[in-house]
Amino acid sequence: MTGFSNRFLIGHAVGIAGVAIIVAAVAIAVFAPLIAPVPASQIDLHARLVPPAFVEGGSAKHFFGTDNLGRDILARLIYGSRISLAVGTAAALLGAVIGSLMGILAGYFGGRVDAAISWFVDVQLAFPFTLLAIFLLGTLGGGFYAVVIVLALATWVNYARVVRAQVLTVKVQDYVLAARAVGVGTPRTLWRYIFANSTAPIIVVASFSTAQAILTQAALSFLGVGIDPSIPSWGAMLNDGREYLQKAWWIATFPGLAIALTVLGVNLFGDWLRDRLDPRSAR
């Protein structure tokens, strides 16, 4: 008994930690101009590659140091959270909409609809995503919306698979047959009966897809095909810092830590949510 309630409380603490990290990240993004010590793109060629304040040779003026153009790392981290969080959230949402719709259609109608959608899912999973992303971003020409669309293409498959599986169990419930017996039409049945009872796995997938999207956006910037690298984003900063890893480790390390922490927060929150939504777990 005690073991169980301890686990339950620890579960809650972990969930709250996740929420705290997410709330902090969002607050930083929203209030960036108020928090940042200097503008993100302010170049100071006299203060290039200054180490962080807590390292020998560091300066209190630049807490996390500066990059090769003398831009303040802390300021760039704060402003960079905007793109990273916006891209992660938008991609996860768009992926959720596309993937849930496909999963519902495949699971509910079955047959050829299912075969066609499952074929797309399999192809997508078999095809190296980076190649697809480079090709699409080359064609679409980069930019925020292009990156969001490409990342949604990377994540919709996750949603489609879990939603389809969930729909297969929901559609054989008596209440779905009862809806047909009452005379409820197909669109309303899909929305109020099938979708409404398939949301639990969507929420869980959304949490790890957000993390995946933030990481992939960073990877795309790293490859130089993402969002214009002059706009600060954590991915672009990682990319910039890679040449200086030997001389100035702080340029790449801090955005890397920011990504890791955010992904951790989202995952903690997702795990907690999954446990909460599992009907077998006590409430």
Binding site: Q173, D174, Y175, L177, A178, A179, R192, Y193, A196, N197
Partner: peptide, 11 residues
Amino acid sequence: FQDPFSSLNPR
């Protein structure tokens, strides 16, 4: 239906 626990939409 037989089972009133599955014949009503929980949502």
